[in-house]
Design a binder for these strands. Structure first.
Length: 224
DNA sequence: TGCCAGGCCGGGT
DNA sequence: ACCCGGCATGGC
């Protein structure tokens, strides 16, 4: 078979997965949050943490009207840690949040317009330079707050691709970049598509593809 | 009750 | 270049 034909099969399968999920769950309208700042804060707080706990932590910040750049910039780190306690790793995350806010405030005056006018990939490198921001967090910020066409890869993405034998399993795990390239090379570069696709992956992952007990029977991807 | 959750870092090999 | 321990709360 020609390489191009194989390529088209992969593209087809990927779009098929997307269509099934989209039909099953309906539009998910990510990222949850009232502002770009809230999205970026959420991206940091949700590291290895379920969204419900993050949601609580964000509500507590909002309760005191502190979900603003200047407030977060001036807030005491220890106090911030107590505020975000429900999301876990609160000392670590308070520090990481501060690192990001310091960067955002000092380089871009806390303006998302100024920040996201920058080129996607140089901005990505810049974000990765902040201690506490890794690839998934950087890409979540770029895609969901910046509306940049860059695909977000997380543990669910990896797990689901493995279960459907679209990437290597266990030992010799494919890197973040390889998986990201797999999506981006086989899909149109459309931030709305990447937005919805990742949201759908998380949804099916949470509900049908858990680590301990996957429910493959009811999974909308079962027959693929 | 124990395992899991929308990772990342620093240190060791 | 991998591999590992640490970080921590709340839900099921």
């Amino acid at each position: 078979m020609l390489d191009m034909e194989k390529d088209n099969k992969v593209k087809e399968k990927l779009l098929n997965i997307y269509q099934r999920l989209r039909d099953f769950f309906g539009p998910l309208s990510w990222w949850p949050g009232d502002s770009k700042l809230e999205i970026m804060v959420g991206a940091i707080l949700t590291q290895n943490t379920n969204w419900q706990n993050v949601s609580r932590a964000i509500s507590r910040i909002k309760e005191y009207n502190l979900l603003k750049v200047t407030e977060l910039y001036n807030i005491d780190e220890k106090y911030l840690a107590q505020l975000i306690k429900p999301c876990g790793y609160y000392n670590l995350k308070a520090k990481r949040l501060k690192n990001f806010i310091n960067y955002f405030y000092r380089l871009y005056d806390g303006s998302t317009e100024k920040m996201f006018v920058r080129d996607c990939y140089s901005l990505r490198e810049e974000l990765l330079g902040i201690n506490g921001i890794g690839q998934e967090t950087a890409d979540s910020i770029l895609l969901y707050a910046g509306e940049k066409p860059i695909f977000v890869v997380d543990s669910y993405t990896r797990r689901i691709l493995e279960r459907h034998k679209m990437i290597q399993c266990d030992s010799n795990k494919d890197s973040y970049e390889k998986i990201q390239a797999f999506f981006m090379n086989n899909l149109p570069k459309d931030h709305n598509l990447y937005n919805e696709f990742h949201a759908q992956i998380v949804m099916v992952g949470k509900n049908y593809c858990k680590l301990g007990k996957p429910d493959c029977q009811k999974c909308p991807l079962s027959s693929i």
